[in-house]
C-alpha cells in the first residue's frame, strides 16, 4: 500500500531537522572562542616554560585526589614511569614527573580550586602546542625527531589525534585505534586501494602502515622510511630485488613506484598496467642513445610470445649473468 503523503513528509522533516539541529549542538563551543584564544595567547610564553622550582609542583598524588579516574588509567600506562626517578635518567626533577610533566606545574591550578586556566589543557591548544608537550620527552629519537617538520603536523595533526595518554583503546603505544583502522580515518583513499585484489597484506595484519611509512615524519617524501642503508624501504622485505647486479634495470632508479602501485592494484603484481608489454614499451620505445633501448624489430607485438616480455626477460629487476635479463 502506498505510504501516506503525511508520513513521507514527516520522514523528510525529521531528517532535515536532524541535519540542522545536530551541528548547532556544538555552537556553544564558539561562545568561548575569544576567551580561549586570549588564554592561548597569554599562555604562549609559558609554552616551553617548565620552571624547575619544586614549590610550583604538587605531585601526581595531589592530582589524583580530584582526577582519580584519569589517574587510575594513567597508572596503567608506560607514562607512569615518569613518576619514578632513576640515577641515570636524562631528565630529572619534578618538572619531568607524572601529570605535571605534560600539564605543567599544578600548584596554581590547585590553589585556584581547579582553575583550568592555570594549567595546560590539551583540549584547547593548537596542534603545535600539544605536540610540543609530547616532543619535550619523545623527540630525542630517530623515530620522533622529525615530527616538527612532518606533513602530519603541517596539516594540524597533533600527537593526541592518534595517541591517547589517558584512554587508549590499544595498550601498545597508547593508540586510539588499531592500525590500519586509525590511519584509514584520514587516509580513506588508501583504504580503497588495499581493498583491491592484489595488495600488500595490510588488512590481513601481516604488514602495518608503519612498516613503510613513519607517522612521525622522515626526510623522505610521503613520510617513507628507508632501509638500514638509506635505500628504498621496499628492500627491507624484497631484498632479492635490490642487488647490486652486474646488469641493472635502471628504471629502478626512479623507485619501485615507477612500475608498481605499492598499496593495492587491480593488476597483477601490483603493476600500473595490466599487460606487462604495454608497461615495458612505455619506456622501451626510444633509440638507445636517448634512453632505454627500444624493442627489436622482431618483437612482433601481435604474437603472444612477444606480448609476454617477462617470459624471456625473466630477471627484470636485475641480472648478474645476462645483459638482456634472460637469466638471474
Amino acid at each position: 500500500m502506498k505510504y501516506p503523503r503525511e508520513l513521507r513528509v514527516s520522514y523528510v522533516v525529521a531528517l532535515l531537522v536532524s541535519l540542522l539541529v545536530i551541528p548547532r549542538a556544538h555552537s556553544g563551543d564558539d561562545k568561548s572562542k575569544s576567551a580561549r584564544e586570549t588564554r592561548t595567547k597569554t599562555d604562549q610564553t609559558k609554552k616551553y616554560a617548565w620552571p624547575s622550582d619544586p614549590t610550583l609542583y604538587v605531585g601526581s598524588d595531589t592530582c589524583k585526589t580530584c582526577h582519580e579516574d584519569l589517574y587510575t588509567h594513567f597508572a596503567t600506562t608506560a607514562h607512569f614511569a615518569t613518576t619514578m626517578d632513576a640515577k641515570l635518567d636524562a631528565h630529572k626533577g619534578v618538572e619531568w614527573h607524572g601529570c605535571e610533566a605534560c600539564h605543567g606545574p599544578g600548584k596554581e591550578h590547585v590553589d585556584g580550586g581547579g582553575d583550568k586556566s592555570k594549567v595546560f589543557t590539551f583540549k584547547d591548544a593548537t596542534p603545535q602546542e600539544t605536540s610540543a608537550r609530547c616532543l619535550r620527552c619523545h623527540q630525542y629519537t630517530e623515530e620522533h625527531g622529525n615530527y616538527d617538520r612532518s606533513m602530519h603536523l603541517a596539516n594540524g595533526v597533533a600527537c593526541i589525534d592518534c595517541h591517547s595518554p589517558h584512554r587508549p583503546q590499544e595498550s601498545q603505544y597508547l593508540m586510539k585505534a588499531k592500525s590500519p583502522d586509525l590511519c584509514y580515518t584520514c587516509h580513506m583513499s588508501v583504504r580503497a586501494e588495499f581493498a583491491r585484489p592484489f595488495h600488500h597484506r595490510v588488512n590481513e595484519g601481516l604488514v602495518q602502515c608503519s612498516d613503510c611509512h613513519s607517522p612521525h615524519g622522515t626526510f623522505r617524501p610521503k613520510q617513507l622510511r628507508t632501509d638500514a642503508a638509506g635505500d628504498d624501504v621496499c628492500y627491507k622485505c624484497h631484498t632479492e630485488k635490490q642487488g647490486p647486479f652486474v646488469y641493472q634495470h635502471e628504471a629502478k632508479i626512479e623507485g619501485c613506484a615507477a612500475c608498481h602501485t605499492p598499496h593495492g592494484s587491480t593488476n597483477q603484481r601490483l603493476l600500473k598496467q595490466n599487460q606487462v608489454n604495454l608497461l615495458c614499451i612505455s619506456c622501451h620505445s626510444q633509440p638507445a642513445t636517448a634512453g632505454p633501448p627500444g624493442t627489436p624489430s622482431f618483437h612482433d607485438q601481435s604474437t603472444g610470445k612477444y606480448q609476454s616480455c617477462t617470459f624471456c626477460h625473466v630477471a627484470i629487476h636485475g641480472s648478474n649473468t645476462s645483459r638482456v635479463f634472460f637469466t638471474p
Partner: peptide, 26 residues
Amino acid sequence: YSQLLVCFVSDFAQAGLPACPGVSGL
C-alpha cells in the same frame, strides 16, 4: 589514466601509423 607515445612492431598494427623516430622498423 596515462598516455604516452610508444613504438612497437605488430603485423596487425593499425593502418597508417607513423614510423618510430630513431628506431628502425617500428
